[in-house]
Design a protein around this nucleic acid. Structure first.
Lengths: 342, 342
DNA sequence: TTGAAAGCGATACCAT
DNA sequence: ATGGTATCGCTTTCAA
């Protein structure tokens, strides 16, 4: 025997607009209009509807709304490595800004890179209004968004082949500032700790640094690689500092730089920055801790996330808006881990 | 003039089950059954449906599914401060485990505590199947979940008044281990850095430590407060160490402990652990960094998040399951920041 | 096994 | 300003 639907108010199951309509003695359409933007309802009926809704604890069903309006008011946020210390900050900013605009966040994190296709599948299924992706996407995957008519904004990821809306923190100027200041301070022997080969940001930063060094006539720069983690930075620095002495280590991100600092100071007894300078990139919180005071380039996370959200919202409102790349520059944070020329 | 719906395949709008049905020459019901678990479809029709779905790039609309089945397959995850270093790890684990079970994550982060009611409102509207909350909830708010029949699991939050499903890392044993080992090492003058007054975990940890100290006859322990941030730990340690000398500082979480270590070593020139021991709670990644090697109690995040997810899923499947509190114990991590008796 | 038809809870267009 | 009605894209009886 089917259970009779009860409109027993907040204490029972949440009611529907029909329940509210019945209680208020109006049509269901009226209830709908009452909760919508430009719905025409007389002050009196509105009052009665509101009252009825109140006593029933009525909340419009966003799922049903989504079905008919074809707008879920949800955007997918895809983040690859939340363990990266920089990304939690990005995520917090993104969700804050999105929810302030009345948009919900469907979060996807990926551990094994293979999951990405499953994630995209889910994004389609849930009819997200759009997606902000801070993860590696293939050209085909980016293309799939276009085909599906789903707005996409890449966060700090480059796509050389496909044109996509994206926000990026440009590496060139930042690395140049670091390198110039160190060269001006008389340093000549540099070492580099790169990120994983498949990281476009990582490679861009390394390339930027190498270019600037080359311009100053410094070539044959020893390089090693990490995976953006503290441990990998620590290990890479260990390898770099074995059998050669350096003036400075340039790491592709802050966390590896912190690992490098510790390796230098603790394992090699090198005073930082007196004997060795270390610089990073990102501007994560621990980089400012007193034990490190890392000299680095801070990404303008607030402006970047705001841009990403704005670009996405724009494209959700008007799907015809084309690709656009917004490049931000980092700001030099002069810590105490590098001896810079002022 | 209304635009004719086109079934132009992956290149166009994603089609519906009707489009697939038409292309496969079957009824829409058949398509639905084909994509459902125990749907009875003959191998031949199934093959044709799959083929049609393939060419159209068909994906079942999860929104429509949710509307009819009254299951959104989304759970809300509410986290208060993603900047806390411990929570990104928790969030990553939660989303990973949830998505592995085919459940989507609707993420809510809150900056101003006032937002919480808006968040709950959204959770109702989107008909989440349940919620995992790592944020402060009032008894009334917890009650609202019960009234709405929405499963709720609290993560590391205590509710003295209302009975709720929750997972917690118990503070007693952990703090006792720390305190005992320090007392056994001969320390007598302790200082405590507590968290915010309204943090139940923070207060529980402090109380546990104070209790154990009292059992050893140590009372009148100087205390100060922070907000769980590095800067606040640094500042609190500064105040504690001014005008008195201590053997050890017990901080309510790791990040404050790291701030305290830096204050002690850098601002006060106190060797850690020779002149001052510092201990924390959580087991965050930076606590293991070579510069700190913090002695702390590590929360079993993996088991705790697994428990939270399992409890929630259980309660989604069977709403009659009652409250249950699962208490986990932390494990002592012997770093180098405290001189412990073995 | 298959198809027809009745919802799920809203929106929106259309006459009143 | 109001109410009636046709969707939205599915799941789920219920007959055939």
């Amino acid at each position: 025997m089917p259970v009779k639907k009860d409109a027993s108010g907040p204490a029972g199951k949440r009611g529907t607009s029909y329940d509210v309509a019945r209680l208020a003695g109006v049509s269901q359409s009226a209830v709908s209009r009452c909760f919508r933007e430009g719905g025409s309802v007389s002050p009196t009926t509105r009052k009665r509807i509101i009252a009825a809704a109140e006593t029933l604890g009525y909340r419009p069903n966003a799922i049903a709304q989504g079905l008919i309006t074809r707008r879920s008011n949800m955007v997918a946020v895809v983040i690859s490595n939340l363990t990266n210390l920089h990304y939690p900050e990005v995520l917090a900013e993104l969700t804050g800004r999105l929810s302030r605009r009345g948009v919900r966040v469907l979060l996807f994190t990926l551990s094994a890179e293979s999951e990405i296709d499953d994630i995209l599948d889910q994004i389609w299924r849930y009819r997200a209004d759009g997606a902000i992706v801070a993860a590696r996407l293939s050209a085909a995957q980016v293309d799939a968004f276009g085909k599906a008519g789903m707005p996409l904004v890449l966060y700090n990821r480059q796509m050389d082949d496909a044109p996509v809306a994206s926000v990026m923190c440009e590496s060139g100027a930042g690395e140049a500032m670091l390198v110039d200041a160190m060269i001006a301070a008389g340093m000549r022997r540099f070492g580099i700790i790169a990120g994983p080969e498949d990281s476009t940001v990582g490679e861009a930063r390394v390339r930027a640094a190498l270019d600037r060094l080359a311009q100053a006539g410094i070539v044959d720069v020893p390089r090693d690689r990490g995976d953006f983690s503290y441990a990998s930075g620590h290990a890479a620095a260990g390898r770099l500092l074995t059998g050669q002495s350096l003036d400075a280590i340039i790491a592709a991100n802050d966390v590896m730089a912190l690992g490098a600092m510790d390796a230098a100071r603790i394992d090699f007894g090198l005073a930082v920055p007196d004997k060795l300078s270390v610089v990073g990139f990102d501007g994560v919180a621990p980089a400012r801790w007193a034990s490190y005071q890392l000299t680095t380039v801070r990404q303008p996370v607030g402006r970047m996330t705001e841009a990403a959200v704005a670009m996405l919202i724009e494209r959700i409102a008007d799907a015809t808006i084309g690709p656009e790349r917004r490049l931000f520059s980092g700001t030099l944070v002069e810590g105490a881990s590098a001896r810079l020329a002022r």
